[in-house]
Write a protein that binds this DNA or RNA. Structure first.
Lengths: 211, 211
DNA sequence: TGTATCGGATACATTCCTGTATCGAACGGA
DNA sequence: TCCGTTCGATACAGGAATGTATCCGATACA
């Protein structure tokens, strides 16, 4: 953290500045990619000088990390909420619609998240953070699926609720990759729905909706 | 391209230099990520001065592009070959083993490829190249699956051989994402096998091996 | 409202990287 | 082997980004 001290009077101005810097960073990172952005650019976009930056962060890496945490937490909450909404039956299309509303809506977030992925792939500590975020999401899915068992059967190949949840995440990641290239959100949404239906049904051709 | 001229005597030395630069770039990009690499670093790793670089490329972007094409072509060939090998029956585990031997073996390649993905996600022209590469692979898979129909049935939800091939690619992408974080190749391989089995069987619980 | 502290602007030194221009050595063809 | 061409090393100038030190206006709190 920038400026260590046992006690520190944190003013409102500081909080605002920090938030503005993070917001500006998000926009700039999304547009140009983390690797092509300088501290100055972020400051300029936020309407501050570099003095403000160094007063709040030690490096661009630290800011990126903070940015990721902020948004990832937000999204994890939203997804958990969205999954908690519906009843015990597993209405795949409805759930997918609601969740993708959160997860696939904002291509900018996908861009930044992928930047963060390649960043994490080269740094154990950062990777750990990302893995934890992913696990939180997977857990939420797992619980959702668990509530549905008894009502519906999952395909055996994946090995229980745990495997099924992993499969959902993998499908999401797979669809994301394609989406980053063709930028066709609607297509991605439909496609994810199909994939999940294929993965979460026993394959009798009868999707397990509303059972 | 660097140094345009209608006719040009290309010496062997030049070819060697170019190849060395590309190889060095691959190593450096894999280790540090495209965004954190300077032209000088690539040259140093290759044992050349910057003069050699500018004689062969105009920018780091151009080199990156050339590097991607080179490796992507190689891999597309290998995958096509691997898929052409076996008979008309669809032996999912065997095919997966053989293909992942090529696709998931080299984490360095996955790192570079993902760097290229985020690069492409922000540049239409580059994205086009990546999409073409992906389509080549998808076609190879499609043909493989087509040869298997009549012997085996695919789940209807995905909508024919086309959809099934897309699903295979998505599964691969999904597993790749996780692999980049946990670096566990064996796990990834097993996991991809399970996913594909789940996706490509009619879900009766009976994988369509050796039919 | 007064005052001590905090936050951010500004200016500066520095480092790193880029791109170009030039030159000698290596190369290939005869 | 000789010669014209090509390749890559070296030196240089310019620019861009970084991090720090300093200062003044803003802010919290009594």
């Amino acid at each position: 953290m920038a400026v260590e001290q046992t006690t520190r009077r944190v003013t409102r101005r500081r909080v605002r500045t920090r938030a503005n810097l993070l917001d500006a960073a998000f926009a700039v990172f999304a547009a140009k990619g983390f690797g092509r952005v300088s501290i100055e650019e972020v400051c300029e976009a936020a309407g501050y000088s570099r003095g403000a930056f160094y007063s709040n962060f030690d490096s661009l890496d630290e800011l990126f990390f903070a940015l990721y945490r902020q948004r990832a937490d937000l999204i994890a909450e939203q997804v958990t909420e969205a999954l908690a909404l519906d009843g015990p039956g597993l209405d795949v299309p409805a759930s997918v619609d609601r969740v993708t509303e959160v997860l696939l809506l904002d291509v900018d977030w996908l861009l930044v998240k992928t930047d963060f992925l390649v960043h994490a792939a080269r740094d154990r500590a950062v990777a750990q953070t990302l893995l934890e975020h992913r696990e939180r999401l997977r857990r939420a899915i797992e619980e959702r699926l668990a509530r549905a068992t008894g009502h519906t059967a999952l395909p055996a190949v994946l090995g229980g609720v745990d495997g099924a949840a992993r499969a959902v995440v993998a499908a999401y990641d797979g669809v994301t990759t394609q989406l980053l290239l063709d930028k066709d959100i609607e297509r991605a949404r439909v496609w994810l729905g199909q994939l999940l239906t294929a993965l979460l049904t026993d394959g009798s051709g009868r999707p397990e909706q509303d059972l």
